[in-house]
Design a protein around this nucleic acid. Structure first.
Lengths: 211, 211
DNA sequence: AGGCTAATGTCAGCCGCTGACAGTTGACAA
DNA sequence: TTGTCAACTGTCAGCGGCTGACATTAGCCT
């Protein structure tokens, strides 16, 4: 059974998150002060920083959820799949199942708008890229593990992951720039672009020699 | 002939830059306050911000020089070279000629140490990655221009550039992590790694079909 | 009911950064 | 050389993100 205190905390956090994203997407990230966010929820500014380590963290709360969701999907892939194939299936699969997880926290449409803000706000874009880099490092280790390789001596895991990450970033930008902000549109873009690079890199590593 | 006023300005800027980098590399970027930097040079904090738009900008002053140097080297490459080949030659070439340009502003060794700070300071790393992304966009357009392609319809320019950028970032990290901080070491790492990926992507585009 | 602890508010303060205004110093012509 | 103009600088006041310390409130548990 969930205690009252816990429910209250969850409600405050959700309210803060919702207020923050709503303000970010309407008046812009930089134009929004933490005081404003706190005022909407009617708590002190100090309380905001007890829930979120920084203003930035509020913007990235949902993206963090989708990340862990995706990484788990990658780990769950059968080991016989080629690396890029496993990554590909994991993204597409997680796109399908992430919706409900997101919507329990924030309206999907608000999340979409937030992505646009992230991409168009220099400070947030920078943070996003750094996080992507950390994610790629994690993925490289997973891929290396699947293939029985050492990520420090064999560079191929990092290479595929880098290519994969590069494609995903391009897809993100196209999705955000386009009109259709639906998950289906994202699915299609992802599939099409990954199919494009696939042939160039999806060879059977275990049989081929390294470079 | 250079006026006294201009010389004074240049001297102040150099002093601020030097003091900033020296402090960043000894006590760390976050631990260094702008007041401290200004105090070393014996100017007001306000003056610092008249020379550098932000504390960050001081850290990236020299990197910005090397960037423009490199981009110009790429533009100068003969158009018959394949894209990746042109990029490869441009980096290696600019490594050789950038030294003097740097040393006119800051001791080379201080610049090296600064790179380590950038890579190990989250906020700086994030800014560095964002700048890399902007640079890749510029390079993609240059490559597309050379090949007579439209960067918005044909994704191959962005792909090579992304791969190139990915390799360069890996090389940067290895160089910084290693003991040999010389330009020669950087040259070797760059050459070796680019030779590795080359074969996989250096085909003759104009003859081959797009995917 | 009352003690314990988690959650919150308040306050003071640091740091990055900016606008406004005044004072100083170099440039340049009369 | 001197006086005028423009550039450079210092000072000050203030905003916004963020933090530590301490007091207060509110839920939990016996």
């Amino acid at each position: 059974m969930e205690t009252l205190r816990e429910r209250k905390k969850a409600r405050t956090r959700d309210a803060l998150l919702h207020a923050a994203l709503e303000l970010f997407t309407t008046k812009g990230y930089e134009q929004t002060t933490v005081d404003e966010i706190a005022e909407v929820v009617d708590v002190s500014q100090r309380t905001f920083f007890r829930y979120f380590a920084s203003k930035e963290e509020a913007a990235f709360f949902v993206p963090r959820l989708t990340e862990t969701h995706f990484v788990e999907a990658v780990r769950a892939r059968p080991p016989h799949e080629a690396p890029l194939e496993a990554l590909r299936r994991a993204v597409l699969e997680s796109w399908d199942t992430i919706n409900e997880a997101i919507q329990q926290v924030v309206p999907l449409e608000l999340h979409m708008r937030t992505y646009r803000v992230i991409e168009s706000t220099p400070a947030l874009l920078a943070a996003h890229l750094r996080r992507s880099m950390e994610l790629e490092e994690e993925l490289a280790r997973i891929v290396a593990g699947r293939e029985g390789l050492d990520v420090d001596t064999d560079h191929r895991p990092r290479l595929v992951v880098a290519v994969f990450g590069g494609v995903m970033r391009v897809v993100e930008r196209m999705w955000i720039a386009g009109d259709d902000l639906s998950i289906e549109a994202m699915r299609e873009l992802t599939a099409a672009h990954l199919d494009g690079v696939g042939p160039a890199l999806a060879g059977n590593w275990r049989a081929s020699q390294s470079y």
